[in-house]
Structure formats: structure tokens, C-alpha cells
Design a protein around this nucleic acid. Structure first.
Lengths: 214, 214
DNA sequence: TGCTGTACCGACCGGTTGGTATGTATAATA
DNA sequence: TATTATACATACCAACCGGTCGGTACAGCA
């Protein structure tokens, strides 16, 4: 009740911060972090420079916050990392791939994966960016690896696969596919690559022929 | 003889242009194209602004030239695209992967693939960059696809694989692997991913068991 | 020898950048 | 109600950016 009170002007720090984060994300997604203009972000957010520098000490910190509070959730949600595992991991992963392929937007094909963009641009230039971005990639990879390991325990995944290795490869292939498709501006290429990855996942299932008993 | 004459000062346009290209490549590789400073490039090349703008109409054109005349050759050479195909394509590709994994430099792991960097940064911002970068990716993909098709004709590659689809996936996986490894700053991760890719390639060979006839 | 075009030099320019300093209205507290 | 801290607003700044422009040095040709 006290929180929802009158609120003259835009004077709500949480809302202001959020507008900043959203606008910054869009601008960074479009032009990259270094080329992103604070004035543009400010104009888009409808906020002044004073407000920005009240909430963040500098441009870099705004970027870190965008990674931690916008991009991270965005990615984890889109790749089903937040959902609890169900059924065998190969089928689950293939389902995610299929759904992502079906729901691609033109903007996604044009601009690629926001997390990967930041990773490529900023990793060599700023350790904190690198760590922030990488932490998210690790969460994703770990989730996939864990699913695969569970699948092995349940007999839906071959015993000779190394879960972490395969998980890292899956993530790399996905990001690489987005990257190539972004260069080629081709949703078809992206879908095709995701299909090939899906067939690769298929090969992780145990071979049914022969050796029934042990 | 006339060409090798006295040459007072640095007054040799080809040499000057080359210094510009080399210095620009390094600076762009380090910081990205947009963040690359002409003054830094000039200082590194030991050339003045007048010389730069004599050889190139603007910064973008310098960038295009770097792609066409430096990065393209660099990449095609490193991935064996220029070498004539020999033996079965799977073994050849695996060999290239192994050699690349063995010869990785710290700088490569830190900065990633120069062509992919440019592709990710500039594709959405500049059509000419996009086309230039993409032309090289196409040459690479085509070469792999052609090898695979030849392999199919010679019986060393399964008939049910779609050469271009697989080739695109291979290139995407390689670039994705470099990208992830760059973020993680891990040569080990890169090597591991290339190994997984190698095992994927293995699966493209015809299955020897059963159906001997036909 | 004089002329012309190429290759280069470097001072300078307007615009944009991230960042700061000062001021002020509002909300919380005493 | 007085005081203080928060949450902005705005004017301003030095540094740097890509790009321009007038001048110069030299090479080849008439």
C-alpha cells in the first residue's frame, strides 16, 4: 500500500532503473557495448544523465547490470534452463531446439544471441564482462550436462558420452549456428544447423541392437 | 630494376598500403572495428593520416580491404581450404582439426577468430562488411561441402548426408567453439569441442556392418 | 628544364563521447 | 515542522573521434 502510493513524476527509483536497463539492453543489442551511446539510451529510456549516474557509477557498470539482470534471464528462459528436467534428455533437448527453430524472429536472425554478442565483443577487453557472461554460459552448460548424466543413469543416454564435453559442444554449436546465420542473414541456415544438431543428439541414445544383457 | 631503385623516404605506395592493412588488422582484431582508432593504427603503421586517406576514402573502406586482403587469406589458409583435397574427406577434415588444435596460440584463444569477430560485430551494421565476411564463409563451406560430395562418390561418406548442410554445421561448430572458448579463455575447452566435432565427422562414414551387397 | 600527377604530411575541424559539478524537488526521519 | 538523504535535472567539460584541406616532395614525362 505504501509502495503503491501516489507517485508524482517519474520519481520511482526501481522503475527508473528498470527503464535504464531495458533501454540499455536494446541499444547494446543493436550496436554492441562499446558503440552504444549513453545519450541514446537516455533518450530511449526517457531519463536524464543525472538519473543514470545516480544508479550506476559508470557505463561499464550499466553493462554488467544488463548482463546479470536482463540478458542472463532472457537466455536461460529461452533455452529451457529454468524448467525442471522431464523424460529423457535427448528428446527434451530436441524439443527445445525444435521450438526455438519454430519461434525465430527476424530480429533474432539479424542481431544474433545477445549474450554471445557481448561475449565476443567484451571478453578480451573487460574481465568483469567476461566473468559475468561466462557465468551464464556455465549455468546453461551445467544444466545440459546434468540432464545428460541423469539420462545415463536412467539408460536413455549412452554410457560412453562425457556429459560436460557434449554439453559444451551443444552450446558452442548453437551459438555458432546463430553466429553464422547472423552473418548470412538466413533463418533457413539457422534452422538447418539446429536440425543437424538434433540428429547429432539422436546419436547419443544407446544402440538398441545387440548386447541386450549387459 | 626500375622498381627496386633508390627509394628515398618511405615513398613506396604498395609498402605503405601494406603497413596500413597489417596495422589495421591488428587493431581491429584487438578492439573490434568500431572501437579501432585510426590514430592508433596510424601510429602502429608509422604512417600519417594523409597517407591513409590517400589510399582509402574512409575508415569503412580500410575495414573492407582488411577483410578481403588480410583476414580472408588468413582464414582460408589456416583451415586448409586452399589445399587440394586428398584421400577421404572425413580423415582430411579430422587432420585439419587435429593440427589446428595442436597449434593454438594464447592470442587465438583470447581473441577468437578474426573473421567471426567481424561477422558478429558488423553484419547488422554494414551490408558491405556482411557481404565481404560472408563471401569468405561461403568459400569455406563450399570447399567442405564439395569434399563431402566427392567422398560420397568415392564411397567414403554416407550417402544420406546432405553435404552443404553438414558443411555449414561444421563451420558453425568450429566458430561457436572458438567463441565459447574465447569467453571461457580456455584452450582446453576449444580442444575438447574440436574433438567432439571430430567424432561427429567419424559418424559420417558409411556403416561397414550389414548390407555388404549393393 | 619545366610541368604534372602521385604520394604523403600534419594542422585543424566540428561533432560526439563518457563523465562531472551544481542545483533542486521530493521522501524519510527526528 | 526542521533536517537530512534520496532521486533526479541540467549545464558543462576535456578527450577523442573520423575526416578535411592546403601544402610539399618527388618521379616520370615533354
Amino acid at each position: 500500500m505504501a509502495k503503491t502510493m501516489v507517485r508524482r513524476r517519474g520519481r520511482d527509483p526501481d522503475v527508473t532503473r528498470d527503464k535504464l536497463l531495458k533501454a540499455a539492453f536494446k541499444e547494446i543489442y543493436r550496436r554492441g557495448f562499446q558503440a552504444a551511446s549513453l545519450d541514446t539510451i537516455l533518450a530511449k529510456a526517457g531519463v536524464t544523465k543525472g538519473a543514470l549516474y545516480h544508479h550506476f557509477p559508470d557505463k561499464a557498470s550499466l553493462g554488467y547490470a544488463v548482463v546479470d539482470e536482463v540478458v542472463k534471464g532472457f537466455l536461460l528462459e529461452r533455452w529451457g534452463v529454468l524448467e525442471p528436467p522431464s523424460g529423457d534428455p535427448v528428446t527434451t533437448l530436441q524439443g527445445i531446439l525444435r521450438r526455438r527453430a519454430a519461434s525465430l524472429t527476424a530480429r533474432e536472425v539479424e542481431l544474433g544471441c545477445p549474450l554471445n554478442n557481448l561475449a565476443q565483443e567484451m571478453s578480451p577487453l573487460d574481465q568483469r564482462f567476461r566473468r559475468g557472461v561466462n557465468a551464464t554460459f556455465d549455468i546453461w552448460t551445467d544444466a545440459v550436462a546434468k540432464d545428460l548424466a541423469t539420462g545415463q543413469a536412467e539408460g536413455t543416454v549412452r554410457k560412453d558420452v562425457h556429459p560436460r564435453k557434449i554439453a559444451a559442444f551443444v552450446v558452442a554449436s548453437i551459438e555458432g549456428s546463430f553466429g553464422l546465420a547472423k552473418g548470412a542473414q538466413s533463418a533457413a541456415m539457422l534452422r538447418s544447423n539446429l536440425e543437424v544438431l538434433s540428429s547429432f543428439l539422436e546419436s547419443l541414445r544407446p544402440t538398441k541392437s545387440k548386447r541386450r544383457g549387459r
